[in-house]
Design a protein around this nucleic acid. Sequence first.
DNA 1: ATTTAATTTCTGAAATTACTGAAAGTTAAT
DNA 2: ATTAACTTTCAGTAATTTCAGAAATTAAAT
Lengths: 181, 181
Amino acid sequence: MSLSEKNFTFVMHCGEMGSRWGFNRTIGQMCGLLIITKNPMTANEIADALSISRGNVSMGIKELQSWQLIKVQHIPGDRKEYYAPAGDIWDMANRVFEERKKREIEPTLTLLRNNLLDEAINEDELYAQKQMGEIHNLLETVTKWSSELQRLTPEQLNKLMKLGSGIGKVIDLKDKIFKKE
Amino acid sequence: MSLSEKNFTFVMHCGEMGSRWGFNRTIGQMCGLLIITKNPMTANEIADALSISRGNVSMGIKELQSWQLIKVQHIPGDRKEYYAPAGDIWDMANRVFEERKKREIEPTLTLLRNNLLDEAINEDELYAQKQMGEIHNLLETVTKWSSELQRLTPEQLNKLMKLGSGIGKVIDLKDKIFKKE
DNA sequence: ATTTAATTTCTGAAATTACTGAAAGTTAAT
DNA sequence: ATTAACTTTCAGTAATTTCAGAAATTAAAT
């Protein structure tokens, strides 16, 4: 069963995006393909649909599993493995974000902290430390916020999302109320 | 003037991160170098500090300018160009985000919209469209929110950042108040 | 135990991307 | 107009990444 033209276009686009998001083109395509395909697919079906080698699919699966983006399913009486996305779109975006946080932000924070612990020995290092401190703050804020958002209940999150331009008003509101108390 | 060991480590790390953030290694290094260096640098100074060719620096500068991350400065009586970061850390992070939005999210939204306009001709396409719709919603939410955040005044933003886990409470609060009205 | 159906790993080739160094281009001063 | 100081471009090369296909491995069925 081959992809319709529209779906093919989408899958190819996922490939382009994939290469900008931390995996390579074929892995992006695999991910896109699994997302728009209703039923779980076997490795061979994936290879056929994308015209890539079976070995390449195997490596891609491993990589997508390391990002926790796909899961394996079995069909009774069939020994092939069937692959499907490991959650809805929101879950997947979250996983990518979390994984990149782990792979990029955390090591950077560690490096920055180490650097900031040492005493600066001259003007240049002092300035460098100031800047590194800024980066550190930014990254900490981002991580703090992302975990805050994850802590919200789905309803709260939904409300927050719909809030839109109201966010400014709400901040001011909160401010007024708590100042009075 | 060469980099201290600590600063060198930082710059190299920026190189690694750069390659994950949409530019290549040397461009990441250049960016890191300019960030921690107090005074603007000439292209030759950059080339020396990073042990890369002058031509490479020139290409890197062009790229960093296309991301609006650096600016050129001139020193009276000196015809060399001096390069410096085009803002503070927060500005730069914002620029990277905005630029990636333009290069990645917007084209994706366009593709998804086109795809969603067409009537699905079978079950497979219907499911695919449902999923694409989800992606579309997610991306729209992200873009909407990023522009909301940019619309906030620095003080509002600051309050929001400090809010942390309070965000959930504030949402509930807002909810109660507006329900009563 | 053997066969069979499947998956994974690995190697070298192909494709892509990044880099250098030289040549061409630009600009400002004389 | 020429020179000098600097920047950009570009062709060729180097490095890296991606990939196919073969070989090795695993696991189920007989």
